[in-house]
């Protein structure tokens, strides 16, 4: 691997550590949880700051409303539950009381995508990025590893306005250095390349890095961009990369409709049309299984990115 790595960890633990740090550094930060404190890794904040932690119970709609109201008077609420219950279950509450009302709520969502695993499709939300990026005023952040999730958690506390922060359950390699600078809306170009641009978010960034290595062995030079912010999207990073490479693969643990790939396609269509291939879930719900079995069955593996890159290249050269 061209990048140095620092072991494996789950991204949700990066959120938990970030929240713990915010407990010490920002007295206005409060946390709300809908009966999933351990799963969201919010235990440390709860233990250290019981007066700033609010157990809402299994009542996500109420949680979003309470969070919105808490901003009136200066609090910075972080809500925590699974991604499905953070978005589709409470979309209208977020739409009216948070996004339209422009309240400074940080919606923190774990267990996103297929890698939640055995719980199955009821819990594997694959539409959340799309739903949240459609909302005016909403910022959408999907960090790639433990360290970046920690850094993103700190960054969204300082960001004025509603934010959706998406992370997950499985343990994945850490490649973000502790001293990296995380900037909302500014993509990380992890590897420079000239033949094809791989744009990924979340867990798929590591797979894009693996794909880059395999493509290099085939003599294909791939550029890898970690698009950790879906909205506002770093249009400049996309266009300057595609100006070099002329074709794109997007990769996300999300539905093809509405996600990162759609966001990138819109930028290309408006500014600089280029062949694009999509590694994403194609209009189907998930199912029970281990994370790796699911990624294989739904074509979200490293090999799928490699094959997509070859298709994009072929279209470019046709």
């Amino acid at each position: 691997m061209a990048l140095k790595t620092f072991g494996n960890k789950d991204t949700r633990s990066g959120f938990g550590e970030g929240l713990r740090i915010l407990g010490e550094t920002n007295p206005e930060v409060v946390a709300l949880c809908a009966d999933l404190t351990g799963s969201l890794k919010m235990d440390a904040f709860q233990k250290n700051h019981p007066d700033r932690f609010f157990q809402i119970g299994i009542a996500e709609a109420n949680m979003m409303g309470i969070a919105a109201g808490m901003t009136i008077g200066g609090k910075i609420p972080f809500t925590g539950t699974f991604a499905n219950f953070s978005t589709s279950r409470v979309y209208d509450q977020i739409r009216q009381s948070i996004a339209y009302s422009r309240k400074n709520v940080k919606i923190c969502a774990s267990h996103a995508g297929l890698t939640l695993g055995e719980d199955g499709a009821t819990h594997q939300v694959l539409e959340d990025i799309g739903m949240m990026r459609m909302l005016p005023n909403m910022t959408v952040v999907v960090p790639a590893d433990y360290t970046q999730t920690l850094q993103a958690t700190l960054a969204i506390a300082a960001w004025d306005g509603p934010v959706y922060l998406r992370f997950g359950r499985p343990s994945v390699p850490i490649f973000t250095p502790d001293d990296a600078v995380f900037q909302i809306g500014k993509a990380d170009v992890l590897i420079q390349g000239t033949d094809v641009t791989l744009i990924a978010c979340g867990h798929m960034v590591w797979k894009a890095l693996e794909a880059q290595e395999q493509l290099a062995e085939k003599g294909i030079s791939a550029e890898v961009i970690n698009m950790h912010t879906i909205k506002p999207l770093d249009i400049e990073a996309i266009l300057s990369s595609v100006a070099k490479t002329g074709c794109v693969v997007t990769a996300e643990e999300h539905m093809m409709n509405g996600g990162l790939g759609d966001a990138v396609a819109q930028v290309l269509a408006k500014n600089s049309p280029a062949p694009q291939e999509f590694v994403a879930v194609n209009d189907t719900f998930g199912e029970s299984g281990t994370p790796n079995e699911l990624l294989k069955k739904y074509h979200l593996e490293t090999v799928d990115i490699v094959l997509a890159a070859e298709r994009a290249l072929a279209r470019k050269n046709a």
Binding site: N62, I66, G69, Q96
Partner: peptide, 15 residues
Amino acid sequence: QGLSVSIGAAITKTM
């Protein structure tokens, strides 16, 4: 939605 919002505002006032 208003009662939830009001609870949140009331909590912040107390804090």
